[in-house]
Computed example of a mutant assay.
Amino acid sequence: MKVLAIAGSNSENSMNKHLVSYASTLFENAEVEVIDLNLFEMPIYKHEREVNSGVPPEAHDFAAKIDGANVLLLSLPEHNGTYSTAFKNVFDWVSRIKGRTVWNEVPMLLMSAAPGARGGAGVLEAATKRFPFHGGNIVDTFSLPFFKDNFDTTKQEISNEEKNNELRDKIKKISAIEIILEK
């Protein structure tokens, strides 16, 4: 099984990068790749830019990473109730590739970590509503509120036992679905 882990942030010390990196370690017998969104930085999407220059190679590279995965782990930070600008730009460019959907129906665990009590509820709601229109096969969602209280950045793991067990159960669920799909 190939797992692609993506943090929808360009921050060097992103809570969501910590979370998705940790979640990726919970898969057994999997080939895991954690990608850095900064490697897919492109000019801000503009129709005229697309007409004049086409879709940037970074968008095609990002799409190829998705296409090579059996499972997607995506952890999104919440910026003003929705996606970060860095993630939205990659999403917009990939959506412009002819003949494909962004997520290509790859089973996805959608996550968010946040410093407050809502745990990224706004971005999870936005993505859960939007992604199915772009080939998003969201198997489950996971929210980690109060990041500083619930995640140990020294050990690189969720320190809250209840939230850790919840995430482990969701990883088992998506792993089981992928095993069934492989048969």
Rank of each mutant, 00 (worst) to 15 (best):
A127L: 11
P132D: 01
T128L: 05
W103E: 04
G116H: 10
P132W: 03
V123D: 04
A113E: 02
A117G: 10
W103C: 10
A126P: 08
A114T: 01
G116S: 12
V123R: 03
G116R: 05
V123H: 01
N104I: 02
G119P: 05
V106G: 06
G116D: 15
A121Y: 10
G120T: 05
P107R: 05
V102P: 00
A114W: 03
T101C: 05
S112Q: 12
R118I: 14
L110Y: 11
G122I: 08
G122Y: 06
E105S: 15
A127V: 00
E125Q: 07
E105T: 14
P115Q: 02
M111L: 13
G116F: 10
A126R: 05
R100L: 02
A121S: 12
T128S: 15
A113L: 01
N104H: 08
R130Q: 10
V106R: 14
T128W: 07
P132I: 07
K129H: 13
R118M: 14
T101I: 07
M108A: 04
E105N: 15
E125Y: 06
V123P: 04
A127I: 00
V106W: 08
P107E: 02
T101D: 11
T128C: 03
W103T: 04
A117K: 12
W103K: 06
A127Y: 04
P107D: 04
G119F: 02
G116W: 05
L109M: 02
T101V: 07
T101L: 13
M111S: 07
G120L: 06
T101M: 10
S112I: 13
A113D: 00
F131C: 01
R100E: 00
P132L: 06
T128P: 07
L110S: 11
V106D: 02
G120P: 08
P107I: 01
S112Y: 09
M111N: 03
G122V: 05
W103I: 12
G122W: 09
R130I: 13
L109W: 00
E105Q: 15
A126K: 07
K129Y: 10
M111P: 08
A113G: 00
N104A: 14
G119Y: 03
E125L: 05
E105M: 14
G119H: 05
V106K: 15
M108C: 09
R130Y: 12
A117S: 12
M108Y: 04
S112P: 12
A127M: 10
P107N: 06
G119K: 00
